[in-house]
Structures are given as structure tokens and as C-alpha cells.
């Protein structure tokens, strides 16, 4: 397997009324060809911002990429000019967004909106592009596709629109699809269908998928690799099994405990994470999670945690992973003890 995308040390800042917000503070990530990477975190942790910055979709100003690189097939996406980026966007890397209702142009026919990227990237005629759009709609399992082609977004339900968004995204057979909370705005039953569709299409097209979500259920179902983000940084990174069964960061543990789990047949109590994420106007110099962390030690409030390897390819940004740190029963600390 080879890396299709590698992000190094990405920093994103926003200039606002009240000062500079450090939304993303040194993001490192890699996505392998054909696999699914889930990026998990609560609202405002910088997960959407990172990938919008990557795609060059961040409004600048107020947004600003202060440093970092993103290698995509030999190109540094962050250094490309807007005109060099454009041929990649929509054809090599595609993106779908959270709210399908507002993400489609309300006054343009669905068919025209799908055909658009085929026309500009593949140089198709409008007629061919519309034919292709019809196929894509059918591929995303939208009923009465020929009729749907000539309808406007307001005539669709949310789930249908997300299918349209997916059809639009895969139109040019991209190698990487970034799905930013693709099911958050949808009903639970619809969520399931959309996820199944995404999974099937990924297999069929051999795409890599970056799934941005705050829903651990979605992660468990879809992901190969998982990156847990907190306050603009990745705090834990590993395979889906690592994250779920060998959680090596207290934040991941907290997320898991806040997740309803009925499968085990016993009524486990939901434990919320106390407090709220830190103010990113002036992010804490030490561990950002320390203030909320039930396992916090003095060092966590004093020094920024280093990145430790809990097990092979399973990294955690936590002092408790220090080889000589005191252990906690719930926290996976590698094979050292």
C-alpha cells in the first residue's frame, strides 16, 4: 500500500474581532490508497477546517494557512497556485459536505449541477455530460433518475440530496473523497443507506476516503484508520481496533464512555466529558485536554505532551504513555506493563 495523501504540520489560523484563533495546530496525517481514514472530534476541534484548508476552500481572509505541507501524488497542495489546484479539485480530490440542503444551488437543475464537473474536467459536451449524470444518479440508487435530472434541489429530500452530492463528487472518479460529516444532517435510517452507498462506491472506484465525523458509530462501521482530534491537534492515531479496543488517550476513552452502547445487553451508564474545549484564542501551552482530563497529572498542566507509540503504528499524545508513567487500568499503555 502506498500513501495517497500525507499532511505534515498543518497550521490554520483565523483573524477575528477578538484576536487570532489557532484552529489547527500542527496536523500530521497520512491516508493510504484505497483505505478509509476517519477523523473524529467534537465540534470546533478543527477537523473540517483542516480539510477545507487542504482543498483551498477556506475563505482567506479571515482564514490563513500559516505553515504545513500536504503531499498529494507528488504535489504539495498547500503550495499550488489556485489555477493549478483547480484541475485537481473535483476530479482528483472530491468533497461532500454536511448539509446537502444548502450545499446545492437552489436555482439550478440537479442534472446541470452534476454535469458541470464533467464538462469542465472531462471536456464533455453538455449532452454527454447529462447522459453521464443520469448514470451517476442511477449508480447512487436514486429512483426515477431521468425525471430527477430535471428537478430542482427543493424537490428532493435530504437523503436524496446527499446522494446527489455523492454522484457529483464521484463524477470524475476521484482518487480521494473527503466526506465532511456526510450523515450528520440526516435521519438515522437514511444515514445507514448513505454510508452503505459510500462504502460500495469506495470499493467500486478504489477510492481513498477521508470521513470527518463526530459519530463513533460511523467510525466503527466505516474506518480502517482513525485519527482523534482535540483542540486543533491529533491526540490519538491508529487502526480502528486500536482506537476502540486499545484506546491510548484519555480523550478517546471519554468519547467512548459518552457513547450509548446497547449491544452488550447491559445498561451501561453514559459518562459525559466535563467542561468544554479550550479557548483557541489562546490555546493552552501544555496538554489542551488536561483541564477536562480525569487522569491529569501536574506535568499535563505544565508541559506539552510528547507523542508516544502505544503499540505499533498506534500513536498517542499523552504523558501517561511515558514508559515510566503511572498506569491507569482503563487506559491502554502498550505492552510495557
Amino acid at each position: 500500500m502506498s500513501k495517497i495523501l500525507e499532511i505534515n504540520n498543518l497550521h490554520v489560523e483565523f483573524d477575528t474581532y477578538g484576536g487570532t484563533v489557532h484552529a489547527v495546530r500542527g496536523l500530521d496525517l497520512a491516508v493510504q490508497k484505497g483505505e478509509t481514514l476517519a477523523v473524529v472530534g467534537e465540534s470546533g476541534c478543527g477537523k473540517s477546517v483542516s480539510f477545507q484548508a487542504l482543498m483551498g476552500l477556506l475563505p482567506m481572509p479571515p482564514g490563513r494557512i500559516s505553515s504545513g505541507s500536504a503531499n498529494f501524488q507528488g504535489n504539495d497542495l498547500l503550495k499550488l497556485k489556485e489555477s493549478e489546484m483547480r484541475p485537481l479539485r473535483g476530479s482528483q480530490i472530491a468533497m461532500i459536505f454536511q448539509d446537502p440542503m444548502s450545499s446545492l444551488n437552489p436555482t439550478k437543475k440537479i442534472g446541470d449541477q452534476i454535469a458541470e464537473s464533467l464538462i469542465i474536467h472531462k471536456g464533455m459536451s453538455k449532452r454527454d455530460a447529462l447522459k453521464e449524470s443520469l448514470k451517476l444518479l442511477e449508480l447512487t440508487r436514486i429512483g426515477e433518475a431521468p425525471k430527477r435530472l430535471n428537478q430542482y434541489p427543493f424537490e428532493f429530500s435530504g437523503g436524496m440530496l446527499q446522494r446527489v452530492m455523492i454522484a457529483m463528487a464521484i463524477a470524475c472518479k476521484p482518487q480521494l473523497l473527503i466526506a465532511d460529516e456526510p450523515t450528520t444532517a440526516l435521519d438515522v435510517t437514511i444515514q445507514d443507506q448513505i454510508l452503505a452507498l459510500l462504502k460500495d462506491l469506495q470499493k467500486e472506484y478504489e477510492m481513498s476516503l477521508i470521513l470527518i465525523t463526530h459519530d463513533l458509530g460511523v467510525v466503527a462501521r466505516m474506518a480502517d484508520q482513525v485519527a482523534v482530534m482535540y483542540a486543533g491537534q491529533i491526540v490519538e492515531n491508529g487502526s480502528v481496533d486500536d482506537i476502540f479496543y486499545r484506546s491510548a488517550h484519555p480523550y478517546t476513552l471519554g468519547l467512548k464512555q459518552a457513547l450509548p452502547n446497547s449491544q452488550e445487553g447491559k445498561s451501561a451508564q453514559l459518562i459525559p466529558i466535563d467542561g468544554s474545549p479550550p479557548d483557541l484564542f489562546s490555546p493552552p501551552k501544555a496538554c489542551a485536554y488536561a483541564a477536562r482530563c480525569p487522569m491529569a497529572r501536574k506535568v499535563c498542566l505544565e508541559k506539552a505532551p510528547l507523542i508516544f507509540e502505544a503499540s505499533s503504528k498506534h500513536l498517542s499524545r499523552c504523558w501517561l504513555q511515558h514508559p515510566q508513567a503511572p498506569s491507569h487500568p482503563e487506559l491502554f499503555c502498550g505492552e510495557r506493563k
Binding site: 479557548d279 489562546s282 483541564a291 477536562r292 491529569a296 501536574k298 499535563c300 508541559k303 504523558w319
Partner: peptide
């Protein structure tokens, strides 16, 4: 590194604007 536990109150002191 000081791995002594922190008193609860200190840990949850939040900075608010």
C-alpha cells in the same frame, strides 16, 4: 516530570473571556 495528581479544583479551572 511531575506525575503527582492534581487536585480536582485546579484541573477544572477554566479560563473564560
Amino acid at each position: 516530570l511531575d506525575f503527582s495528581p492534581v487536585p480536582k479544583s485546579e484541573a477544572h479551572e477554566e479560563k473564560m473571556r
